[in-house]
Design a protein around this nucleic acid. Structure first.
Length: 939
RNA sequence: GCUCAAGUGGCGGAAUUGGUAGACGCGCUGGAUUCAAAAUCCAGUUCUUUCGGGAGUGUGGGUUCGAUUCCCACCUUGAGUACCA
C-alpha cells in the first residue's frame, strides 16, 4: 500500500473539522498556552508559499504544546478593513464587503488545505459589525480618559472634571496639548459648557485637534508616520506632503516611557526591540530658557548636553517657529520671509534628499546667555525641526557637527570649551572622556559631572529644568476613507459627542461611490443616511439634521491599525461572543499571548499600537496584563526565484542566457511556470503567454534549448515568480509542504524558495510510510526493539524536543530524516519505536501521523497522545571515537573505552603507529587529553 | 551617517558550553533494475594534489594545546532609521 497523501489528507482534515478537534476550552485544569499568528489581510491575490511559513511554525508549536499537556488556544482571523479592497471598489464599483468576503473564502480554502490546527470557532473579522462594535467602544473609552502623570496611568475623564470643580487645573499633571491656560475652580464652573468641552478635549487620550499631518493626495487620506517609508506612502509609493488639518489623534506619547520600559519585560528579538526604542527615541537633558534682548519674548530650547552651555555662540530656530516673525528686525524681515516661503515650498522628500546643503538666515535679533549675559545671534535654519523638542536649539558648534557646519558656513565664531581637544577640522562630538574647560563653574569637570552640575545650576537660577524628550509623536487616527470603522461620534456645535455603548455598533452607511465628495469631504460625506438621532438613538437621514436633537455624524473612519490593536483579546472569549468583547473569566484565564509569530514589517506600527492599547485597557481595569505578546518571533520572508529572458533591443528576438553578452539586451520577467528545474524555457508556452511574443524569434543554446537567467527577488505577482501552496499540496501533499517550508532554513531568516528541492522531503515521507509497511501490508509488530532502534528513537526525541523549544524547525526535519534512514537500515518494525515516532512527527506532518496512529490501532486522534519522554539510558555509550589531532588538526580517529583515564588514553595514543608516523621522530611538547572529547598532540 | 542582523561546497543550509567543519536535503557523476522511461536502490561528490599529503568557514591580526564559535580592525550584503539638538 503506497503513500496516498491526497486521500489521507482529505480524510483527516474532514475528521478534525467534524470532531472540533482543535476547539479550545476556557474551562480547564490544564495550564494554558496561547499561540497566535499575525492575522492576514485577505488580499485578492490569495496566498503564496511565503505566507504560510509563520503559520506552519506556530502550528507545529501549538500541536507540540498540546502533546505536552497544555490547553492550547490557537485561533485565526482576518484583518479585513483596508485600502486595497477600497481601491478595487473605486475601480469596479463593487462593494468592498463583497470582495472582502470572496477573498476571505479563498484564504480559508487555501489555509484548510495545509492542515492547520486553528480553532475556527473563535474567528474574528475586523470588518464585521459584531467585531468593530467593540473597536468603537474602546475608542469611546479612550475618548473618555485622560493621562494622570502623578498616578502614571489613564483615568476616567469624570475624575478630571471633579478635580477641576474642586481646584481648577493648577495641580493637575496630565499629558496634554501645550496651550492649556491655567484656571481656578471658580473659573471652571463659570465656563460655558462648550468652553469646558474644548478644554477637556485637550486632555482626552483620543482627541480632535489641528495637527500637522502627512497628507497623501493620491490616496486622498492622511497617513500615520509608520505608514510612510522614505517619504512616500507605504502602499502604492505615492508622495506625501505636510498639511495642517483637524484630525483625531491618539495620545500614545503619554505611554512613551511605559512602552520603553515594557520592552525589558518581554522576550522579543533584540533588533525588533531596538527599532521600537529608536521609534520612541528617548533623550534625557534639560530645557533652558533664553531671553531675547530688547523683547519680552523668551526662547525655550531642549539640550542633551547642558554641560556645553558655555560653548553656545548662536541659536537656531525652525523656520516655522512662532517667535520668528515677532523677533525679526526690520532689516532682516525680507530675507527671513523669503527663506520661510522657500522652505515651506520644499516637500519633505526634497528636504530629506538634500541633507548636505546648509541654509539659514540671521533674524537680526539677539538672545542673552543665561550665565555670561553675552549677546547670542538668533538664526533660523531648516536643519532644526519644528516637530521635535521646542523647535529651537542652542547651537554649540564646538560639540555638534551640524552646528559646526552651520557656523563655518556663515562665519559665526566657534568657541572651544573642551580641554586639550583640537576642533579646527570638526566638532568634538564624542563626549566619552572629555573634560570641560573655559566654562566658569563647569571648568575642569568631566562631562558626566558637568551635566549634573549644569542642570543643578540651571534649576537653582530658575532658567530651566531637567527634562526628558521623546521622538514618539501622537498617532493620527482619522482616515479619509470608506472601508474602515466609523467613529461613534456626532457633532454638536462643532464639538464631538460620543455615542454610548448600548447603541453600538454604528454601522458603515451605503454610498453610491467610494470617492471623496466634490467638496473634498471623505467618502462618508456621500451617504444620505448619516445623522444621529439623539432621541431615538439611531442613524437617520441627513435631511433630518436640525442640530437640536439630530446631528451630523463623523465622516472620517478609523485607520487599519484600530481593529488589530486588540483582536488578540477578542479570541479569548468563546461562549458569550455577542455580549462583551471578552469576559473577565476568559481574560483572566488566557492572560496574554505566549507566542506571537509574524512579519517584522509591523515593528513600529501594529506592535507598538497593540502594546499601547493593552496598557490603556489595563489602566482602566479591562484586562489584567500590561503587555500583549510575551514572546515574539519574526519569520523571515520567503523569496521567489524570478526567471528572465533577454530581448535584443529593438527586435522581437530573445537570446539565451549564455549568449546574451554578445548583444544589447533588455531583461524581461518570464513566468516561472514556463521554466523547468534545468532552467529551460518552454518556448511554446512563452509565445502563447502574450500577443506581443506570438511571433518572437529565439537564439538558443547549441542544443536548441533556451536557458533563462535566474535571480532571487521578493515573491510577487508582478515578477511572475509566485508559487502557489495549493499546487504544492496537489502535487506533493500538505505534509510535504509543511516540512519543506521548515526545512528551507532558520525560521527568522529570509530564504529563496526552490520547488526542485521539495522531492527530498517528499521522499522522506514516502520512506516514513514504508517504515511502517511491508509492501502492501501494515507491518508494525509487538516484537522487542533492538538496542540500536531504541537509541535512534531516544536520540531523536532529545534532539527534536530541543529543536522545537528553540524554534529550530529546520534541524528537526533533518533529525527525522536521519531517524528514518537509520530505522530503515535497521529494519525496525517494532511498535515500541514506531509508535512514539508517529507522535514526534505529528506536529510537523499531522496527516500521515494520524493515519499511521490509526493503523497502530488507536481510536482517538494522535493529537491527544502524550509526547514521548526522553530516557538517557538508551544513549549511554561505553566507547568513543576519539579524533587524534596534531597541533589542532585531526589526522586519524581511534575507538577507545570511555572509562579510561587520561594517562591510559595518552599511553594508547602514543603507542599507536600512526602517531609515530605523524611525529616522524619528534618528541611531542605536550599531549592534551580531554576524556570523552579529543586528544591533541603538540610539537 | 547611525543601529541591528548576516557572510561556511554548485545550491538551501548543519556544527546548542571553543574539541573530527560541510550533518540533512537538492543538484551532479557512476552503477543496479528496466525493451525504455518514471519510480526505487547502491556508491561517490569542499578545493587541490606528484595520491604521501596540503589548504580551507568574507579579509587581516590576536587569545588558546585547539577558533565557523571568543576579542580587535576592516570589507561586503541585507533590514531599520535618518538633520532628534
Amino acid at each position: 500500500m503506497s503513500y496516498n497523501f491526497s486521500q489521507i489528507e482529505a480524510k483527516w482534515q474532514k475528521y478534525w473539522s467534524e470532531n472540533n478537534t482543535f476547539k479550545a476550552s476556557n474551562h480547564s485544569d490544564k495550564e494554558k498556552y496561547y499561540v497566535l499568528d499575525m492575522f492576514p489581510y485577505p488580499s485578492g491575490a490569495g496566498l503564496h508559499v511565503g505566507h504560510p511559513l509563520g503559520y506552519i511554525a506556530s502550528d507545529i508549536y501549538a500541536r507540540y504544546k498540546r502533546h505536552k499537556g497544555f490547553n492550547v488556544l490557537h485561533p485565526q482571523g482576518y484583518d479585513s478593513f483596508g485600502l486595497p479592497a477600497e481601491q478595487y471598489a473605486i475601480q469596479t464599483g463593487q462593494h468592498p464587503a463583497v470582495t472582502t468576503k470572496v477573498n476571505i473564502n479563498r484564504y480559508r480554502e487555501q489555509l484548510d488545505k495545509i492542515g492547520f490546527s486553528f480553532d475556527w470557532s473563535r474567528e474574528v473579522r475586523t470588518s464585521k459589525p459584531s467585531y468593530y462594535k467593540w473597536t468603537q467602544w474602546i475608542f469611546s473609552k479612550l475618548f473618555e480618559s485622560w493621562y494622570d502623570k502623578k498616578q502614571d496611568k489613564a483615568r476616567e475623564i469624570s475624575t478630571l472634571k471633579e478635580i477641576f470643580k474642586k481646584e481648577g487645573n493648577v495641580n493637575v499633571a496630565a499629558v496634554t496639548e501645550e496651550d492649556i491656560p491655567l484656571f481656578t475652580a471658580e473659573e471652571w464652573i463659570n465656563y460655558q459648557q462648550t468652553e469646558q468641552e474644548k478644554i477637556l478635549l485637550k486632555y482626552r487620550l483620543a482627541y480632535l485637534a489641528d495637527t500637522e499631518v502627512n497628507w497623501c493626495p493620491a490616496l486622498g487620506t492622511v497617513l500615520a508616520n509608520d505608514e510612510i517609508v522614505n517619504g512616500v506612502s507605504e502602499r502604492g509609493g505615492h508622495p506625501v506632503v505636510r498639511k495642517k488639518m483637524k484630525q483625531w489623534s491618539m495620545r500614545i506619547s503619554a505611554y512613551a516611557e511605559r512602552l520603553l520600559q515594557g520592552l525589558e519585560t518581554i522576550d522579543w528579538n533584540e533588533s525588533l526591540k531596538e527599532s521600537q526604542r529608536n521609534w520612541i527615541g528617548k533623550s534625557v537633558g534639560a530645557q533652558v530658557t533664553f531671553s531675547v534682548k530688547n523683547s519680552e519674548s523668551t526662547i525655550n530650547v531642549f539640550t542633551t548636553r547642558p554641560d556645553t552651555i558655555f560653548g553656545v555662540t548662536f541659536m537656531t530656530l525652525a523656520p516655522e517657529h512662532e517667535l520668528v516673525s515677532k523677533i525679526t528686525t526690520a532689516e532682516q524681515k525680507e530675507a527671513v520671509e523669503a527663506y520661510k516661503t522657500a522652505t515651506a515650498k520644499r516637500s519633505e522628500r526634497d528636504r530629506m534628499a538634500d541633507v548636505k546643503t546648509i541654509s539659514g538666515v540671521f533674524t537680526g535679533a539677539y538672545a542673552e546667555h543665561p550665565f555670561t549675559k553675552e549677546p547670542i545671534p538668533i538664526w533660523i535654519g531648516d536643519y532644526v525641526l519644528a516637530s521635535y523638542g521646542t523647535g529651537a536649539v542652542m547651537a554649540v558648534p564646538c560639540g555638534d557637527q551640524r552646528d559646526y557646519d552651520f557656523a563655518k558656513h556663515f562665519d559665526i565664531p566657534i568657541k572651544n570649551i573642551f580641554k586639550d581637544v583640537d576642533i579646527s577640522e570638526a566638532a568634538h562630538t564624542n563626549k566619552e572622556g572629555s573634560v570641560i574647560s573655559n566654562s566658569d563653574f563647569l571648568t575642569d569637570l568631566p562631562y558626566k559631572k558637568a551635566i549634573k552640575q549644569a542642570v543643578y545650576q540651571i534649576e537653582q537660577e530658575k532658567i530651566g529644568e531637567k527634562q526628558t524628550n521623546y521622538r514618539l509623536r501622537d498617532a493620527v487616527f482619522s482616515r479619509q476613507r470608506y472601508w474602515g470603522e466609523p467613529f461613534p461620534v456626532y457633532y454638536k456645535e462643532g464639538l464631538p459627542q460620543i455615542i454610548a455603548q448600548e447603541h453600538l455598533p454604528i454601522e458603515l452607511p451605503e454610498v453610491e461611490k467610494y470617492l471623496p465628495t466634490e467638496e473634498g469631504e471623505p467618502p462618508l460625506g456621500r451617504a444620505d443616511c448619516w445623522a444621529w438621532d439623539t432621541k431615538n438613538y439611531k442613524v437617520v437621514e441627513n435631511t433630518l439634521v436640525d442640530n437640536q436633537t439630530i446631528f451630523p455624524l463623523e465622516l472620517n473612519t478609523m485607520p487599519g491599525w484600530a481593529g488589530s490593536s486588540w483582536y488578540f483579546f477578542r479570541y479569548m472569549e468563546d461562549e458569550q461572543r455577542q455580549e462583551v468583547f471578552a469576559s473577565k473569566e476568559a481574560l483572566t484565564y488566557w492572560q496574554n499571548v505566549d507566542l506571537y509569530i509574524g512579519g517584522s514589517e509591523h515593528a513600529t506600527g501594529h506592535l507598538l499600537y497593540a502594546r499601547f492599547w493593552t496598557k490603556f485597557l489595563k489602566d482602566i481595569g479591562l484586562v489584567p496584563v500590561e503587555e500583549p505578546f510575551k514572546k515574539l518571533i519574526n519569520q523571515g520572508m520567503i523569496l521567489g526565484e524570478s526567471a528572465f529572458v533577454y530581448r535584443i533591443e529593438g527586435e522581437n528576438k530573445f537570446v539565451t542566457f549564455s549568449k546574451k553578452e554578445a548583444y544589447k539586451t533588455q531583461e524581461i520577467h518570464a513566468d516561472v511556470a514556463f521554466v523547468n528545474a534545468a532552467n529551460e524555457l518552454d518556448i511554446e508556452a512563452f509565445k502563447n503567454w502574450r500577443p506581443e511574443f506570438k511571433d518572437a524569434a529565439f537564439i538558443t543554446e547549441d542544443d536548441g534549448k533556451y536557458i533563462v537567467g535566474k535571480e532571487v527577488e521578493k515573491m510577487s505577482k508582478s515578477k511572475f515568480n509566485v508559487v502557489n501552496p495549493d499546487d504544492i499540496c496537489e502535487d506533493y501533499g500538505a505534509d510535504t509542504l509543511r516540512m519543506y517550508e521548515m526545512f528551507l532554513g532558520p525560521l527568522e531568516q529570509a530564504k529563496p524558495w526552490n520547488t526542485a528541492g521539495i522531492t527530498g522531503v517528499h521522499n522522506f515521507l514516502k520512506k516514513l510510510w514504508k517504515l511502517y509497511h511491508d509492501g502492501e501490508r501494515f507491518a508494525v509488530t509487538d516484537a522487542e526493539a533492538s538496542k540500536e532502534a531504541m537509541k535512534t528513537l531516544h536520540k531523536t526525541i532529545k534532539k527534536v524536543t530541543e529543536d522545537i523549544e528553540s524554534f529550530s524547525f529546520n534541524t528537526s526535519v533533518s533529525t527525522f530524516m536521519i531517524a528514518v534512514n537509520e530505522l530503515s537500515a535497521q529494519k525496525c518494525k517494532s511498535r515500541a519505536v514506531l509508535e512514539p515516532l508517529a507522535i514526534l512527527i505529528s506536529p510537523y506532518a499531522p496527516h500521515i501521523a494520524e493515519e499511521l496512529w490509526q493503523k497502530l490501532g488507536h481510536n482517538e486522534s494522535v493529537t491527544t497522545a502524550l509526547y514521548p519522554v526522553y530516557e538517557e539510558k538508551y544513549l549511554k555509550e561505553d566507547s568513543k571515537t576519539y579524533p587524534i589531532s596534531f597541533n589542532g588538526k585531526t589526522r586519524f580517529t581511534l575507538d577507545l573505552a570511555l572509562d579510561l583515564s587520561k594517562e591510559e588514553i595518552e599511553k594508547i595514543v602514543m603507542s599507536d603507529e600512526r602517531t609515530q608516523k605523524q611525529l616522524d621522530g619528534r618528541t611531542p611538547k605536550k599531549v592534551i587529553v580531554v576524556p570523552g572529547k579529543i586528544v591533541n598532540i603538540v610539537g
